Computed example of a mutant assay.
Amino acid sequence: MIKKATREAYGEALAELGKLNKDIVVLDADLSGSTKTSVFKKEFPERHINVGIAEADLIGTAAGLATCGKTVFASTFAVFEAGRAYEQIRNTVAYPKLNVKIAPTHAGISVGEDGGSHQSIEDIALMRVIPGMIVLSPADAVETKKMVYAAAEYDGPVYIRMGRSGVPVLFDENYDFQIGVANTMKEGNDVTIAATGLMVAEALKAAEALKEEGISVRVINVGTIKPLDGETILKAAKETKFIVTAEEHSVIGGLGSAISEFLSEVYPTKVKKVGIYDKFGQSGTGAELLEKYELTAGKLISVIKENL
């Protein structure tokens, strides 16, 4: 299977967008080689600003440019952007509803060797709670590009969570992404896996393996964490026995929380969460860490079998 990092697709999408829209401006905090905003910088050096290792300035400058009619994409690593610049995101971008796209890379533990200090497992929770913030988490490179285009068209703050490692390409160019719409990738009537990010590929693997054992698994790619596609989630809750959520993020405040919160009010359903259980990451290869923290198809299979 072809693999490609979501950050690679992000850089390409920015460069394409820059040709279509002269008001696209891209900012980075001295990590353009890693975030791949360097691809845009090569094409449009006059519209790329490196603010240096100053994440609060990154967001403040982005907000200022947005007040001048620019559509701004601001990037660094997720742990620095969602964490260090949180107050600026809240007060200078979200509060006045400015047209800034907060687009970090290197989210989750698959960052690998950089270790727990650099592995953002809290960013979805932090961004979800900000009023009016759109929160997106692509499953592959194709969905990333579609999200970047959708974010550019949307007037207001958007958070796009991207990773470091190559992930399987699941979609083709005909895939239609819309903000707020979850994508049912596989039908099933025994159990539902609602997954986001790199866990979508693991969910599909688990579904294929369980099919051999006569267990029918529905797989939903929740590319938009907020606003949650309640209609698709409710349909799954009514048509399958329970829901398993899968995310490369803490189970506190992430996708699992969002789905649990929604269903508890409209249609109480058993929700089992596969994610990171109140721990920091550590150093190791991305593959080793995903195995250690049980973010795998194998874990999804065992959770489903235990609860059926």
Rank of each mutant, 00 (worst) to 15 (best):
G163I: 01
L14G: 12
S110E: 03
G230D: 13
V222L: 13
Q282D: 14
V274W: 03
V167D: 01
G230N: 09
K211V: 07
A182F: 01
G18Q: 13
A194N: 05
M185Q: 12
I179W: 08
A62G: 12
E87R: 08
M133D: 05
Y175I: 01
A236F: 13
H106S: 00
V217L: 11
A152D: 15
D30V: 09
P268D: 06
L14R: 11
L17A: 08
V158N: 05
A237T: 08
G284Q: 07
L308S: 08
I179N: 10
S260L: 07
S250M: 06
E261P: 08
T37V: 01
T196H: 03
K292V: 04
P138Q: 07
N91I: 03
I301W: 13
V93H: 08
F44P: 07
N99V: 15
T67D: 11
E113F: 04
T269G: 04
A107S: 11
S302A: 15
K279D: 05
A66R: 13
G223R: 00
F242K: 05
F80S: 01
V274I: 10
P96H: 05
N21I: 15
S250C: 02
T296W: 11
E306N: 13
D23K: 14
I179S: 13
M147P: 07
I2M: 11
V191R: 14
D57Y: 14
K305N: 09
L170K: 09
F77Y: 04
T6H: 01
R218A: 15
V167L: 01
N174W: 03
I121D: 00
L27Y: 06
A141M: 00
Y267C: 06
F280L: 14
L31M: 14
L234M: 09
N183Y: 11
E187F: 13
N307Y: 12
I304Y: 14
F44L: 05
G64R: 08
G188R: 04
A237C: 07
K305C: 06
A85K: 06
G64Y: 14
T224A: 07
T196P: 02
T240F: 06
A206Y: 11
G275W: 00
A207K: 00
L20S: 12
P157M: 05
N189Y: 15
E212M: 11
M133R: 13
L20W: 12
L126T: 02
D229S: 12
E208I: 14
F171R: 00
K97L: 13
D28Y: 06
Y149I: 10
A66G: 12
T196K: 03
A62S: 09
P104D: 01
K145L: 03
I124T: 02
A62E: 03
A209C: 15
K3F: 08
G281C: 02
G69M: 11
R84M: 10
T76G: 02
K272I: 06
L14T: 11
